[in-house]
C-alpha cells in the first residue's frame, strides 16, 4: 500500500463502515448537513384546541384505534396536547403543551435501535424507517418525550374510510414503531419542487407540516434554522425559548416559547 491509497480506500465498504462509526462518534455531525429543520411552539398562543392533532392524523394516515384501543392505552397521536393543572379552585390554571417528536439532535431513541431503523438524516431529522423496524420498542423506552407509538395491530379502516388515506404516506403494519416525521413527505415535496425550479435550497415557508398548517392560533412555526432569515430563526431569538426536559441533554429541535403570565 502506498501513501496514496487511503483516498481510494475510503470508498470500500469496510472502511466506509468505519467512517460511519467515526461520524457517529463525532458530536454534532448533523450540523454539517443541509438543513436544520426546527419547530417552535409558542405556548402563549397555543390554546389547546387540538386542531394540530387531527391535522396530523389526516396527513399521516394515523389509524383509528377505536374505543377498545383507547381502553387498552394504545392510542396513536404523533402530536398530542398535554394538559397540566396548576393550583386549586378557584385559583386554578390549565396549561397546554403540544408534544410531538422533538427531533433530538442527541436522540436517545437512535442509539438504542439495534437495526438503525431510526436514525438522524442529512436534514437533522430523526427519521423512522418502518420497513427496517423489527419492533423491539426500545426506542419508545428510551424516548423521554413518549412520542413514539407502536402498531399493536394491523389497523383497518371501515370501508370506505380508507379512501381518505394520504397516498404520499405509507400505512404502517403491525409490529413497527412510528412517530412524528416533521411531515417528511412535505419536506421531500418541497425539495423536489425546488429542484424542478432549479433552486438549490427550499425557500422559507415552502415546507408547512400539517399541524403547523392547521393551528388556528398560529402557535407553531416550522422552518430551517440554518437560514437566518427564516421565520423559525426569528422566533428562536425570542427570549422565551426553552426546551422541554433540557436537563436530559437530548438537544431537541422543537423549541417551546414560554407561556406569559401576568
Amino acid at each position: 500500500m502506498t501513501a496514496k491509497e487511503p483516498a481510494r480506500k475510503q470508498e470500500e465498504p469496510a472502511s466506509s463502515l468505519a467512517e460511519k462509526w467515526r461520524e457517529f462518534r463525532r458530536p454534532g455531525y448533523y450540523q454539517e448537513f443541509d438543513y436544520d429543520w426546527t419547530m417552535t411552539v409558542d405556548l402563549d398562543r397555543c390554546m389547546g384546541c387540538e386542531a394540530c392533532v387531527t391535522a396530523c392524523k389526516a396527513e399521516n394516515n394515523l389509524p383509528i384505534v377505536g374505543e377498545k384501543g383507547f381502553a387498552q392505552g394504545r392510542e396513536m397521536q404523533w402530536i398530542r396536547v398535554e394538559r397540566y393543572w396548576e393550583g386549586e379552585y378557584p385559583n386554578v390554571k390549565l396549561r397546554f403543551i403540544p408534544m410531538m417528536c422533538q427531533h433530538c439532535d442527541a436522540a436517545p431513541c437512535e442509539t438504542v435501535c439495534p437495526v438503525t431503523a431510526t436514525y438522524h438524516n442529512q436534514d437533522g431529522l430523526n427519521v423512522q424507517v418502518y420497513n427496517r423496524c423489527i419492533g423491539t420498542r426500545s426506542c419508545a423506552v428510551y424516548c423521554p418525550y413518549e412520542v413514539r407509538y407502536f402498531n399493536y395491530y394491523d389497523h383497518r379502516w371501515d370501508s370506505p374510510l380508507e379512501q381518505q388515506l394520504n397516498p404520499d404516506v405509507t400505512v404502517r403494519e403491525k409490529g413497527v414503531m412510528e412517530k412524528c416525521t416533521f411531515c417528511i413527505q412535505r419536506i421531500r415535496q418541497a425539495k423536489d419542487l425546488a429542484k424542478d425550479d432549479g433552486r438549490r435550497r427550499v425557500r422559507d415557508g415552502e415546507v408547512v407540516p400539517a399541524c403547523v398548517q392547521a393551528c388556528p392560533a398560529e402557535a407553531l412555526v416550522f422552518g430551517d434554522r440554518k437560514d437566518p432569515d427564516s421565520r423559525v430563526s426569528k422566533s428562536l431569538s425570542d427570549p422565551r425559548g426553552y426546551r422541554v426536559l433540557d436537563e436530559l441533554n437530548t438537544r431537541p429541535s422543537v423549541i417551546y416559547l414560554k407561556k406569559v403570565t401576568v
Partner: peptide, 24 residues
C-alpha cells in the same frame, strides 16, 4: 395532569421579557 415541579410547561412573567420578536 400535574407537573410535579418538573418545569414542563414553563411560564415567564410579562415584565421579565422584552417582547421583541414579531412572529407573524
Amino acid at each position: 395532569p400535574r407537573e410535579l415541579g418538573r418545569g414542563i410547561v414553563r411560564t415567564t412573567a410579562l415584565h421579565d421579557i422584552p417582547i421583541k420578536v414579531e412572529l407573524r
